[in-house]
């Protein structure tokens, strides 16, 4: 399970490095870098923390991944997940923060 960094979008704010529970993200030359993709837990803390959608979550090939990228837009009231499938199709799912899970 892992994430992918999109360095061209990164502004080097360091939010991702602050929240990674495994200290896996570091800033180098003003850009975020992942120390070792194999060590990522896939918790998506960095994905949600990034203000520039410069990090996406991906399913590894061994976990059934099919090339899609999952981004998050964390707002005051909502958390919107943006899934970009390998063929370019985009799907959005918005979760209201004040709403509990039905299950």
């Amino acid at each position: 399970m892992s994430i992918r960094l999109e360095p061209e979008k990164c502004i080097g704010c360091g939010r991702c490095a602050d929240v990674c529970p495994g200290n896996l993200l570091v800033l180098e030359a003003g850009r975020a870098q992942l120390r070792d993709a194999r060590d990522c837990w896939g918790c998506t803390a960095c994905v949600k923390a990034c203000p520039r959608a410069a990090i996406c979550y991906t399913l590894e090939a061994s976990l059934g991944g099919a090339g899609g990228r999952l981004y998050a837009e964390d707002r005051q009231e909502t958390l919107t997940w943006v899934l970009r499938l390998a063929d370019g199709e985009e799907q959005r799912i918005t979760v209201e923060k004040h709403q509990a899970n039905d299950y």
Binding site: G42, N101, D102
Partner: peptide, 20 residues
């Protein structure tokens, strides 16, 4: 509803459903 529940704790599952 399940998709949203999983996004709140284990987004991999929702992604897997959508991707496949």
């Amino acid at each position: 509803s399940l998709e949203r529940s999983y996004l709140n704790m284990a987004p991999a599952q929702t992604m897997r459903w959508r991707e496949t």
